[in-house]
Design a protein around this nucleic acid. Sequence first.
DNA 1: GAATCTTCGACCAAATTGTTCTGACATTTT
DNA 2: AAAATGTCAGAACAATTTGGTCGAAGATTC
Lengths: 198, 198
Amino acid sequence: MIDKDEYRKKIIISAGQIFSRYGFRKTTMDELAKALKMGKSSIYYYFKSKEEIFEAVVLNEANMLRNELTKAIKSVDSPIDKMRNYVFVRMKAFEKLSNYYNAIFDKNLDHFDFIETIRARYDREELAILRLIIYHGARKKVFRVVNSEFTALAVQTTLKGLEVPLFWKKREMNIEDRLNAILDVLFYGIVRKQASEV
Amino acid sequence: MIDKDEYRKKIIISAGQIFSRYGFRKTTMDELAKALKMGKSSIYYYFKSKEEIFEAVVLNEANMLRNELTKAIKSVDSPIDKMRNYVFVRMKAFEKLSNYYNAIFDKNLDHFDFIETIRARYDREELAILRLIIYHGARKKVFRVVNSEFTALAVQTTLKGLEVPLFWKKREMNIEDRLNAILDVLFYGIVRKQASEV
DNA sequence: GAATCTTCGACCAAATTGTTCTGACATTTT
DNA sequence: AAAATGTCAGAACAATTTGGTCGAAGATTC
């Protein structure tokens, strides 16, 4: 009754861990049931299908990502730090939010249309955040920007480009160095020259 | 013809990676075939069954473990260092040789009798190595040992005891600290007192 | 004690999976 | 060159697995 939502959350968390370990396909309802210590059919009292559980899991991770990101950019003041934090948190989230990213990249899952929906919405939100950061940076004359909309899009494209190698070889090189390199490039192209002003 | 053994090795390596990721059960022959870029039925030209592949994988890892261990104890001279190296390498191997250890611990696999065989042989070999280290240590009067056979058994028991928590929560605490603690205990109970001789 | 909420075992149809079989192509042997 | 043997893959299969359903049986609330 009142516990139903609570129980749904429990299922989402437990399922999230198992999904992230074995992927959607290789995770069975029996496993989820056993992990939750309930009958397999009982799960269907809370969710209509395996796919619906996965959707909830992915949505949950997407929300967590959003929260962490907004917290990260609120924690600092300068536009440069905001941008740096944003990029860092977003890329560091790769390991934790594996279901979300698997859902986006795994070819076996692209028939799930909810993925496209989530991704589209997240892209829109991300663009808004980036635009805001950039706009404020330009306002404070820290960034040299002609059109904050286009610049935001450019940054987003870079981030997406970084996702791919990050996904395919996860444990290879450390993310930090690579991120810093990208941020360096990004800022040197974007930061207003302090010494010899144009 | 001459390539057959070569190809078997390739299969063992590729299968080893996939098994270590998904476990024996969740790995399908189709996956192995796709990873090897060959027809599923072609695999059966090299191996009689999925189980036989797994056996070869586990055996391979066991051999690798043996090699690393002998190399590790040969690289130093003093009995204390030998013992320390042995324990370290053995426990650090936990991550790399996941199939071997999964085969030993996974309840779903205990019906494979080859596991028991491998384990038994490895136990025997390990005991021999430990006994040798201890015996030499006693000879050099670095270790204080009554019966090197029993002492070796005691050390082995300790190592096995350490396997269990290592298996169940892999990424929790760092192994190093724990190993050092155990070695400390081990040596303080086993090393001959230098200052105030008995 | 009726009504509703929650759980579960039994069951099912569909999909998956390990394995076999047959035949095609390649290579070697005679 | 043809026979024999080695190498591979597609189709087919039997057995198992898997996601999902249904009705009944406890709980809980009214």
